[in-house]
């Protein structure tokens, strides 16, 4: 751990979540986020994050800490960590992906988007609506028309589960 942070002399940052909780992290950990990096370059050490709630921020800080210490030797460990990280509910994933998008953490963003994509790609439109909390604004006639026009895409059985 010390080896990666030596050059930065362990400068610390304070992140403040939308619910006013404050977290102290090393600068080298925080700058993996482009948003934080830009603020740090402008001389800020206190970073308010009005769009990120504590629950998501704790997980994201965990992620950043783990990935800040990435070396060849702990590659497997990080893979396991990532797997556990995305093994959660859709609502948690959505909160995390919004936070990662706001913080501009591209590797986390990629991982979360890929996870969500993989998990919804075989689901039925009805299940996807429930997962994303979307109200269908098509009339039954309009929906039937689209289904008919794209009949090929609606052949076969789809996953109706919501997890």
């Amino acid at each position: 751990m010390a080896s990666t942070t030596e050059t930065k002399q362990k400068k610390m940052l304070i992140l403040k979540s939308a619910d006013n909780d404050e977290f102290e992290i090393e600068e080298s950990v925080g700058v993996q986020s482009e948003t934080i990096k830009n603020l740090v370059e402008d001389g800020f050490t206190f970073v308010p994050l009005p769009n990120v709630y504590t629950k998501a921020l704790i997980k994201i800080i965990d992620y950043l800490k783990k990935h800040a210490n990435k070396t060849d030797s702990n590659d497997e460990e990080i893979k396991t960590f990532d797997k556990d990280f995305v093994n959660t509910t859709f609502d948690d994933l959505f909160e995390l992906v919004s936070a990662a998008n706001y913080l501009h953490i591209s590797c986390l963003m990629n991982m979360l988007c890929q996870t969500i994509a993989d998990r919804i790609k075989d689901k039925s439109p009805e299940a996807v609506r429930k997962i994303f909390h979307i109200n269908c604004d098509y009339t039954p006639e309009e929906e039937a028309k689209i289904r008919k026009a794209n009949a090929q895409a609606f052949e076969g059985q789809f996953d109706e589960s919501l997890d």
Binding site: I120, S124, P125, V128, I134, C136, R147, N150, A153, F158
Partner: peptide, 8 residues
Amino acid sequence: IRLKVVSK
């Protein structure tokens, strides 16, 4: 294409 029917 299947997800197009989710919403407009």
